[in-house]
Design a protein around this nucleic acid. Sequence first.
DNA 1: CAGTGTGAAGTTGTTCACAGCA
DNA 2: TGCTGTGAACAACTTCACACTG
Lengths: 221, 221
Amino acid sequence: METTLSIPLKKPQAVPEPTVRRMPSYLNVLRDILKQGELYVSAPTIARLLHVDPTQVVKDMSYTGITGKPRVGYVVEELILALEEFLGYNRKHEAFIVGAGYLGSALIQYQGFREAGMKIVAAFDIDKKKIGTEISGVTVFDLEKFRDLAGRLHIQIGIITTPPTMAQSVADLMVGWGIKAIWNFAPVALKVPEHIILQDTHIYANLAVIINKLGQLRNEK
Amino acid sequence: METTLSIPLKKPQAVPEPTVRRMPSYLNVLRDILKQGELYVSAPTIARLLHVDPTQVVKDMSYTGITGKPRVGYVVEELILALEEFLGYNRKHEAFIVGAGYLGSALIQYQGFREAGMKIVAAFDIDKKKIGTEISGVTVFDLEKFRDLAGRLHIQIGIITTPPTMAQSVADLMVGWGIKAIWNFAPVALKVPEHIILQDTHIYANLAVIINKLGQLRNEK
DNA sequence: CAGTGTGAAGTTGTTCACAGCA
DNA sequence: TGCTGTGAACAACTTCACACTG
């Protein structure tokens, strides 16, 4: 039973990336607000707490499908549920992480992720001292032994927290594992096939912004 | 000998933030290229390596003040020096970090920063087990003992890697210390005075993007 | 003619303006 | 009146088009 409409009933609903990036912050403040026993919250209130534009909040919220009441605002709990749904808290997203140094360890024990739709199920490293240890309940395996993990895994996300020189070969490995998305923290540009979702998080980019702003400050004075 | 021109000789040169964020990546590939013994490099070459638009590279490079030769490209070493200058490798930027957990430790030992214009000179924590230890040569001090660091410090950057509940009070403390820029990794919106440079790095925002893209993928299929 | 450099066009995201509502 | 919701104006960044150069 196929519909032959040229216009799909459920439109792809492409949410702007900046909006997606703001969603977790909304969720944070909404939970605080709920904890304080508030039932309703208005966009301007949220905006004030996060130092963003009020209309921005309204627009962003519209993507969740939740609709508010004029004069009153939104039902806090409704928004929270909608955001959790949006951010995939319900579906399970399992991840492998390669590189169990400080950064890898930080991500593994990072509180936020537990209840955030992603679960790191295993870590890999090539450092014999780390292999066999446990970080917050996640075992570190020998990467060499798992070079070719046979068959199709259900793991969707691969996280790279290795030194830059190893990152590309790890990425290749992950693609071979059938991973769908790679979250890269190594400061290199990875080459991956078209269909792989690649997300780079280069912390240094943020430092560059800070230093640049400090420099401007100096120039102004 | 002052000029009284209404147009300043050295214009403020406001560089777009996206450009600033790309600078470190340029520096990375240029160093690789130099290591391979190349003297010249063209914008299209850089663009290919980083998967960005060639004209983007040209525009970005123009902010460094370096000018290239048609047909040939730019002098690699010249570009590197200009980028290092731009990113503040020459000036020293000293930083304090509060919160010596995994993430804090990761930032302290993170290779990139050493030669990247920022030096973390001291770490603070309230966990007695961590106080007095050293991470990559940086001593962890008792935050309580340093509640009010008297007088004006030369430290410009304060890094917050504490749990979210402590972040605001740490930020207040840092402002009192006379810090100019705060780099916040805690998933909260900090309230700081107008003149303080605030840079938030919410890793979770990146995860949100990944999960959202995975969701779209599912919908398409 | 392959590459730089730049003004113009296009795209994306943000902010404004205002209609509708309780 | 204060807030939602949305179409229009605006701003920022990216990509295109092309003149220029060795």
